Simulated assay, not measured.
Amino acid sequence: MAHDCSTPVRPEGVYPFDARGVAKRFRHAAIFGALDALRQGEVMRFCNDHDPLPLLEQIGQYFGDRVKMAYVSREPGEIVIDFLIAA
């Protein structure tokens, strides 16, 4: 079953971030800002139309072990990743 980013389910502490609606020139700054705003135990559910491998590398370099990542969906044209703020 495919995940539909246009109708996010928002359990407590899970915040949707649909990158497709952010202008490309602002996208990375917006993502980093959103991750910086999260508190320990909160999740940003990131949706995109492509697998953002360079972005994931940058997030790993900047945040280190503070941010954990898990794919929710990795289908062509539908990438959903949960970013968890760890201890």
Rank of each mutant, 00 (worst) to 15 (best):
Q40E: 11
R25Y: 13
V67F: 06
Q61V: 13
A29E: 13
R39K: 12
I79G: 01
M1P: 07
A34T: 07
D51M: 06
K24C: 12
Q58G: 14
I31N: 00
F63S: 08
V9I: 13
F46C: 13
A2Y: 00
N48P: 03
S73D: 02
T7R: 09
F26P: 09
H3V: 10
G13D: 12
G33I: 07
R66F: 08
H50F: 14
A23V: 10
M69K: 03
G60D: 12
H28K: 07
V80T: 05
S6W: 00
Y62C: 15
L56A: 08
Y71H: 04
Y15Q: 09
C47F: 14
A30S: 15
A70N: 09
N48H: 15
H50W: 12
G13I: 15
V9A: 08
I81S: 01
G60E: 10
G64D: 10
H3G: 01
E12F: 08
A86G: 01
R45F: 10
P76S: 08
A29S: 13
V14A: 04
H28Q: 06
L84Q: 09
I81H: 04
E42D: 07
F83N: 09
V9C: 04
L35P: 09
I79A: 02
K24F: 13
E42R: 00
D18R: 03
G60R: 11
F83P: 09
F63W: 12
H28L: 11
L35A: 05
Q40I: 08
K68A: 14
V22I: 15
R10M: 15
K68L: 11
A30Q: 13
L53P: 03
C47L: 12
S6G: 03
H28R: 06
R27H: 07
G33V: 06
I59Y: 03
R74E: 10
H50N: 05
I79S: 03
E78C: 12
L38R: 08
R27C: 11
A30E: 14
V80W: 02
L56V: 05
